[in-house]
Design a binder for these strands. Structure first.
Ligand SMILES: [Mn+2]
Ligand SMILES: [Mn+2]
Ligand SMILES: [Zn+2]
Ligand SMILES: [Zn+2]
Lengths: 135, 135
DNA sequence: TTATCAATTGCAACATAGTTGCGTTTATGA
DNA sequence: TCATAAACGCAACTATGTTGCAATTGATAA
């Protein structure tokens, strides 16, 4: 039984063709991907609605999380270099739109959100210009 | 000449009724608002497309910025307690969906994104439960 | 292995955010 | 006041994501 299969098993999700395909794409990609990319990269034809349902199932199980919003669409990834309560930062290029995981950066917060707030996860997005677009 | 008018003047934007109305809403709100809210709060009838054009003009001029994405729609605010290169963090409640500006919190990032990256702005979103939804 | 049955899929219709073309209106400055 | 470029209203369009329903399929038990 391969890695994708056991992840689904562990999370009580039926190992359907579509789910295996999508999960393998995430494992292979090693970077955040969007629904559109998933459709494009998939070898077997997947229905748009089904891909969204797979993504939502993975989200609910915590297999993936929403890394950030790229304009109007969400981009997902496997948690990697992420703690329980924070994710690694992402860099979004204003020039070409490309996004980079900043797994080497750490983020510290000072002060508290206020009495009564329960913080569950912190997401950091840094905007700017990537090396190609800076020059 | 009131504040809204002079802001538009300073940024070389014609002081149209719609722009004045929207800008005054931002000034009065003191919190991030979305296009839908703007339409609802406005006294004079505004066209949807025109509101988006006003928002885009304000964005381009730097009068407002996109605070965060609330699900599928963008939420905008006047820069407040924001430096040149970073914005104050926002808290988004998983329970009720409400969002709070965390103007008292500071977030520092350690390490660099990598050679060649030009960082322009840092955005932080903290997810969790607000005081009402925590109890 | 085969039968069963709830979970999942594909399709189509829908919902919602945001953009764009075009003809009309309006703010500005001469 | 007038001329003009910018902005607006409207309607049509694009794109992301969701949902109802009938057909399919994966897990489990016989
Ligand atoms: Mn990442
Ligand atoms: Mn804010
Ligand atoms: Zn770039
Ligand atoms: Zn809440």
């Amino acid at each position: 039984m391969d890695r994708a299969q056991s992840i689904l098993r562990e999370n009580g999700l039926k190992a359907t063709k579509g789910r295996l395909e999508v999960l393998k794409l995430f494992i292979g990609a090693g970077r955040p991907i969007a629904q559109k990319e998933i459709m494009a990269m998939a070898r077997l034809k997947l229905d748009r609605a089904s891909v969204y349902r797979v993504l939502n199932a993975f989200l609910e199980a915590g297999i993936i999380h929403k890394a950030y919003m790229d304009g109007r669409h969400a981009v997902f990834e496997l948690p990697d270099s992420c703690g329980e309560d924070h994710c690694h930062p992402h860099f979004s290029c204003r020039g070409c739109g490309a996004t980079t995981c900043l797994k080497g950066m750490k983020v510290y917060s000072e002060g508290s959100p206020g009495k009564g707030f329960t913080m569950e996860r912190q997401k950091v997005l840094i905007e700017g210009l990537c090396p190609r677009c800076s020059s």
